[in-house]
Simulated assay, not measured.
Amino acid sequence: MITAQFVLTMARYNAWQNRQMKAAMEALGEDECKKDRGAIFGSILATANHLLWGDAMWMARFDGGARPQGGIPESVDMTARLPDWALERFRMDGRILLWAEALRAVDLVGDLKWYSGAQGREVSKSMALCVTHMFNHQTHHRGQVHAMVTAAGGEGWTSDLAFMPGEGPWL
């Protein structure tokens, strides 16, 4: 389904996107990022927190490291301030990159088993599907943040994978 090279490309893309999202959020300002915008998680910061929480949850399953506190309802409160979010986002992007750099083809084979708090039961899914889902989840919520930032009068950012800077091969 996917390769280790694809995962590394997506990890690099994630970090690039988050750097741009951080700059757009900082330019907008913390007060604007905390305003309820009517999105599923409310504000820009709350949505960015949920994304950070989701990455932490998936990475705990993938690399065995620390998992975030609480469930989906608490995910919006992962950090209280924009600078705190930026620091944790930087750390998480580094964690994802280090994991992706060490990934081997065999690591993507087989099933991942975990207890899903959202579903209230044990779940088993293809590892490759779960990794793909993590990157898809990131893109989905960054798209929501992009829409809220631009609706608030802020600058959007380049999201085209084909225009990510750096050396190939990409896919």
Rank of each mutant, 00 (worst) to 15 (best):
158 T>I: 10
65 G>C: 06
70 G>V: 13
68 P>G: 10
68 P>T: 06
17 Q>H: 12
5 Q>E: 12
121 R>E: 11
113 K>W: 03
109 V>N: 12
39 A>L: 12
34 K>L: 15
25 M>D: 02
148 M>G: 09
36 D>E: 06
102 A>R: 15
156 G>D: 06
153 G>R: 10
7 V>P: 02
34 K>V: 08
77 D>E: 06
103 L>W: 03
41 F>D: 06
45 L>S: 10
42 G>L: 11
129 L>A: 13
112 L>R: 05
97 L>S: 05
100 A>V: 01
33 C>W: 13
121 R>F: 01
49 N>L: 07
16 W>S: 02
6 F>C: 03
50 H>P: 07
137 H>L: 00
168 G>C: 01
5 Q>C: 01
152 A>I: 08
140 H>G: 00
19 R>V: 11
70 G>S: 04
16 W>F: 15
125 K>Q: 09
76 V>A: 15
24 A>E: 07
73 P>A: 04
9 T>L: 02
106 V>R: 14
135 F>H: 07
96 I>P: 03
111 D>W: 00
30 E>T: 03
11 A>F: 04
78 M>H: 10
149 V>D: 05
96 I>V: 15
55 D>S: 06
13 Y>T: 03
95 R>S: 01
155 E>S: 13
81 R>S: 03
23 A>C: 05
47 T>Y: 13
104 R>L: 07
37 R>A: 15
80 A>D: 10
150 T>E: 05
44 I>M: 10
131 V>C: 00
111 D>K: 12
165 P>M: 04
6 F>S: 05
49 N>H: 09
104 R>H: 06
68 P>S: 09
46 A>F: 08
67 R>D: 04
69 Q>D: 13
94 G>E: 08
50 H>V: 02
115 Y>F: 15
73 P>I: 13
145 V>H: 04
13 Y>K: 01
148 M>K: 07
16 W>G: 01
156 G>S: 05
78 M>C: 02
13 Y>F: 15
141 H>K: 11
101 E>Y: 03
124 S>I: 01
160 D>W: 02
139 T>L: 10
80 A>K: 15
22 K>C: 11
93 D>A: 06
91 R>S: 10
123 V>F: 03
55 D>M: 11
76 V>S: 14
105 A>D: 13
64 G>M: 08
71 G>C: 07
53 W>N: 09
93 D>G: 03
6 F>R: 13
103 L>Y: 01
